[in-house]
Amino acid sequence: MLLLALDTATPAVTVALHDGTDVIASSSQVDARRHGELLLPAVDRVLAEAGLTIDAVTGVVVGIGPGPYTGLRVGLMTADTFGLALGVPVHGVCTLDGLAYAADIEKGPFVVATDARRKEVYWAKYADSRTRLTDPAVDRPADIAGQVAGLPAVGAGALLYPDTFPVAHEPENVSAAALARLAVERLAAGRELPAPRPLYLRRPDAQVPKNYKVVTPK
């Protein structure tokens, strides 16, 4: 078994290889504006580090967000296409679940929050590192202050808004290594992983053009 895990739903471009026992190679680079450029070279590097080629991959794991759309799609499109070309299954994992797993908190509850831009966060509440209590959502920090009051929080979204998340700590971004370990655990337990489809959580911005401008002077 060789799982290739990748995530582009946070500013990190992160890739890992898991051989069924543990992560054998990984790479994480933080650059929110260059997901498209960085991802494939990172896959190439991680495979080279493990002394393997892409043909050896038996499955793909991809973070499905929520995350800023443009970057999020880079990982999903890459995973989809690897699946097609290699004829291997592609599994989704909620990016917030990956962060929760990496936080390694045995006893919660706690919150995972990432930066959704536009002064909002993507977030969910967890009982422990493996158990999510709420569906991922996107909100203004001030609007959820009551729901997260008194809870520790992880993720860049928590670190960004100390008024709402006074007890915030690392990890800031998701790592593909955590995503891969979580996926392997869940697959081994016979749990089904979500389809590799994006969690946008927002409708597309679409400005309906106003009725055409009247150009005749009145």
Binding site: G36, L39, L40, D44, Y69, R73, T81, F82
Partner: peptide
């Protein structure tokens, strides 16, 4: 930009995997 990036991501993954 965003639309191009989807195609470029797909093409890179396809070419690399094949």
């Amino acid at each position: 930009a965003g639309a191009l990036l989807v195609g470029v991501s797909a093409a890179k993954a396809y070419a690399y995997a094949l």
